[in-house]
Write a protein that binds this DNA or RNA. Structure first.
Length: 891
RNA sequence: GGGUGAAUAGCUCAGCCGGGAGAGCAUCGGCCUUACAAGCCGAGGGUCACAGGUUCGAUCCCUGUUUCACCCACCA
């Protein structure tokens, strides 16, 4: 941190030029290393690791939300004096990045196979050098105060070492194994996918019913399938063990149509007797369930497709056809040869690759797996025992349910871009070894030629280590000591299982401590109709465009204000425009303040005894204090929207609409003492407002901060406001409510009477209560200013003059003579309506109070409150009736 | 098939421990009042999805229903 001087102070421009301001300040923060983490003993630590965006990524509004929230917290804690670290970085995003570079070289008419593995990977690195910084720059644009000197990439040497270290350890512990199992295969990406990388989409398909003749020709059984091409790989038909219909097939078997191959009939409990004919074709190599059945009955596995989804030699005459072309051909042939019973429309879920949406083909394949059950148990225990808290809590059950049913994690991918699996086989003797570094020679036979596994690891494997690998693990660094476990992880709920759960498992197992204490799962940003934003629908709100149009602070405030805990945030551009008005409001309030406080020194109001000050100042300081408390509590609880709305209300409705108008007479007047207090309080409130706002709207607050009198360092390093008990003043709040009630009543009369704002009026406040009367005496001049009233009388009892309008506020009657402007009938109607409302409410309350059970059971304070209300309403009602009577006389 | 969330003003949403609802935008009326027309002042607008239950009292808690959204799942 630094105390260097900032850009020269000057008067604030008439309009807030955010573009110039944002660029200037961000550079200034970088120049002064304001984002760099401190590691001072004795100070609390606060750390966040960024959910690393894909290196291929472009900032979308979801990133903007996610990173705004992180930056709000980071700036808040930094101002509170924590050792604060926000680790930025990007993810190498295996398949996604490989796809991008493949497309790039495709324009040169080449495929990655033309280049070869080594050259191709060089190209990917080259691509990363040139284009990989895009999203990082966009995060800077958003104002993110990450410690950029600690930026990491999941393929960095350090992180790669962490990956190898963890892999070897898990392998040696028996938690990583290699085996031939059925996996999800993407024929386009030509790689295996983990279960959660497959998206199931409800699709309108067909259900084909096919006759499989008995092997002895005595009849046939009908099986149904949505994927008829897989019949070429059928190695059995399964029926339920207790299904009498098919017992005789035990010895006979059936013949596969088209190929004539004879296959056995097996009896398995998996089969539902009620579904279709109760007979199921079994393709162990291309269906997960069939694979299981195959295992149970020791069935042959017959793969009929290659890794591109093209039918192979095993498909006989169909070899060389794409699987979907083959489906058509098979159906046509079945039809022609009389094997097709019927075709039904059938809606079912089809698995797709989450990266490219290609229909996934289940296939048996030799892959690496993590045995996750023991790891998952630790994660579940950590959440259950409160070592990790997920916010909002509603996710706990979902989390447990998923973790309890978790299956082994397929971590090998048949692509080139990623962490190559650290396992080697000796070419000479076949010795197999898993090591952190490439062995120079075979430890068994001494041969120097070893072949490394060609597969790379699932990208999520390295991201699972992110919270400690970015802090320097496996070395024992100071960063780890200060910042692990990290304080909170902020991410979107859609990667709870991809990423969050896996970080928990790895952190707990490898480090022995959770990777973070809190997880805050925020909503997904949708369009204003709740639809997913997508380029094809054209409903995308591009944060970069929006920032250019409305300013970064406007976007940040909008996202913060909309960040209520929930499932989705419906965002429309009008909202951002609305909050730009708020930024503008702050700007103008500051301009106004600066006109009057130029000659002031830095605020000293914290040292002023507010008891000696007039109500206006006591009130605003009290409200500021309350707002500080609320903002602090809200941010501590991740209630971002509450923090935003508390400060919005305070700034606009209280500070601007009331306070500034209220103190104008002091500021413009000749009373030097009154002016001095007004200046001091005004500056103090403005300073705290800027600090409270800074985590959400860093740019505009910094710019205004430096225009304030006195030498200023960055507002980033100012202490965040804290509760000030000296400012606490509930009595001021009550008195201010009376004041505002009377002002409101007079304004209402003016407006209803359509009196021109410049028309001067006189008013009378009939106030039977002497104590209140004394309060109003002191406020008379302020009431007059705020209502443009020439003359104001406060009297314990008064007679309403002819042609006067009146309003009732509590036990007060506010009378404004407006000769000729009064519509008596309208006034009476208004009074009648108000009377009805008050009577209704009174009736309800009296009903309650006469209800013995209520009085007996309700808490004493509630009963007291109701009694108070009753008295107040009774007084109001009396006033209303009197007012109406007098008005009647005018008819 | 299982699970989760949502239903509150015309729109988008707040509403912590149950004491009879708030904001922004939009609408209507009046204002270029020397910080701000990206503004100021005033006003209107809600059977808190529906039906029961618990309670002195329910937008809030419980049960059921309807509608919508999402997640998980091996009925071919």
């Amino acid at each position: 941190m630094t105390t260097d001087t900032a850009p020269a102070r000057r008067d604030l421009a008439k309009a807030y030029e955010f573009k110039e301001v944002e660029a200037r300040w961000y550079q200034n923060w970088l120049d002064h290393k304001n984002f760099r983490a401190t590691m001072e003993e004795g100070k609390p630590s606060f750390s966040i690791v960024i959910p690393p965006p894909n290196v291929t990524g472009v900032l979308h509004v979801g990133h903007a939300l996610n990173n705004t929230m992180q930056d709000v917290l980071v700036r808040y804690r930094r101002m509170q004096g924590c050792n604060t670290l926000w680790v930025p970085g990007t993810d190498h995003a295996g398949i996604a990045t490989q796809n991008v570079v493949e497309r790039q070289i495709a324009t040169e008419g080449k495929s990655r196979h033309d280049l070869g593995r080594e050259k191709f990977i060089e190209r990917v690195w080259q691509w990363r050098e040139e284009k990989g910084g895009t999203i990082i720059n966009q995060l800077k644009h958003l104002g993110c105060s990450c410690d950029w000197d600690r930026e990491r990439f999941t393929m960095d040497e350090g992180l790669s070492r962490a990956v190898r270290t963890v892999f070897v350890r898990l392998y040696k512990e028996g938690l990583i194994y290699k085996g031939d199992y059925i996996v999800n295969w993407c024929p386009r990406c030509k790689t295996a996918l983990a279960d959660d990388e497959v998206e199931h989409e409800e699709t309108a398909g067909k259900l084909y019913h096919i006759r499989y003749p008995y092997a002895d020709g005595s009849g046939h059984v009908i099986v149904a399938t949505t994927r008829p091409e897989t019949m070429l790989g059928d190695t059995a038909v399964a029926v339920h063990p207790d299904d009498e219909r098919y017992q005789h097939l035990r010895e006979i078997g059936v013949r596969l149509p088209l190929t004539g191959r004879t296959i056995p009939v097996v009896f398995d409990h998996h089969v539902e007797r009620e579904f279709g004919t109760g007979a199921l074709k079994v393709t162990p190599s291309h269906d997960r369930n069939d694979y299981e059945i195959g295992l149970r009955h020791n069935l042959e596995r017959l793969k009929v497709m290659d890794d591109s989804g093209i039918m192979n030699e095993a498909a006989g005459p169909y070899a060389g056809l794409d699987r979907f072309a083959c489906r058509k051909k098979i159906v046509a042939d079945l039809e022609e040869q009389g094997f097709l019973e019927k075709i039904e429309d059938y809606a079912h879920a089809v698995g797709q690759c989450y990266r490219c949406k290609t229909v996934v083909e289940p296939t048996t394949s030799l892959q690496w797996f993590v045995s996750v059950k023991p790891l998952a148990a630790k994660a579940v225990a950590a959440v259950r025992d409160g070592h990790i808290a997920i916010h909002p809590k509603t996710w706990h059950n979902t989390f447990y349910a998923w973790m309890d049913n978790i299956r082994d994690w397929c971590i090998s991918r048949q692509i080139w871009w990623g962490h190559q699996i650290p396992a080697w086989t000796c070419d000479a003797c076949g010795h197999f070894m898993v090591e952190e570094e490439a062995p120079a020679a075979c430890p068994k036979c001494g041969a120097a030629t070893l072949s490394q596994e060609t597969d790379v690891l699932d990208t999520w494997f390295s991201s699972a280590l992110w919270p400690f690998s970015t802090l320097g693990w496996p070395d024992r660094t100071r960063e780890l000591k200060f910042f692990y476990p990290t304080s909170v992880l902020i991410t979107s709920f859609d990667i709870l299982f991809f990423w969050v759960a896996r970080m928990m498992m790895m952190g707990l197992h490898i480090m022995g401590e959770p990777p973070f204490k809190d997880v805050y799962l925020h909503a997904l940003v949708r369009d204003k109709h709740g639809k997913k934003m997508s380029k094809s629908t054209g409903n995308v709100i591009d944060p970069l465009v929006v920032m250019a149009e409305y300013g970064t602070d406007a976007l940040r405030f909008t996202l913060t204000a909309f960040a209520a805990q929930g499932r989705e945030i419906k965002l429309a551009e009008e909202r951002i425009e609305g909050y730009r008005h708020f930024i503008n409001k702050i700007w103008n309030a500051a301009r106004f303040a600066l006109m009057h406080i130029k000659e002031c020194g830095p605020a000293i109001a914290r040292n002023i005894d507010p008891a000696a000050l007039p109500l206006s100042h006591r009130w605003i300081l009290h409200r500021l204090n309350q707002t500080t408390i609320e903002v602090t509590r809200a941010l501590d609880d991740y209630r971002f929207n509450d923090a935003a709305s508390a400060i919005y209300q305070f700034v606009w409705s209280e500070f601007c609409d009331w306070y500034l108008e209220w103190v104008k007479p002091d500021l413009y007047g000749n009373d030097a003492a009154a002016k001095a207090s007004a200046q001091a309080v005004l500056l103090a409130v403005l300073e705290d407002v800027l600090k409270l706002l800074h985590p959400i709207t860093p740019f505009v607050t910094e710019e205004i901060w430096h225009a304030l009198p006195g030498a200023r360092t960055s507002i980033m390093v100012e202490p965040f406001p804290t509760e000030n008990p000296v400012w606490h003043d509930p009595a001021a709040e009550e008195e201010a409510a009376l004041f505002m009630g009377v002002v409101g009543a007079i304004r209402n009369i003016r407006s209803e009477a359509q009196a021109h704002p410049s028309a001067e009026i006189t008013a009378m406040v009939v106030c039977p209560d002497n104590a209140k009367g004394a309060i109003f005496e002191k406020l008379a001049s302020a009431i007059k200013t705020l209502t443009r009233t020439k003359e104001l009388t406060i009297t314990p009892s008064g007679q309403r003059p002819k042609g006067a309008a009146s309003n009732i506020f509590q036990d007060l009657e506010i009378v404004v003579p407006l000769a000729g402007l009064i519509d008596v009938e309208k006034e009476l109607a208004k009074l009648a309506k108000e009377q009805a409302r008050v009577e209704g409410e009174l009736k309800r309350i009296q009903g309650k109070l006469t209800n013995e059970k209520f009085v007996a059971n309700a808490p004493a304070e509630v009963v007291a409150k109701e009694k108070e209300k009753e008295a107040e309403l009774t007084a109001t009602l009396t006033k209303l009736k009197e007012s109406a009577e007098r008005l009647e006389e005018l008819r």
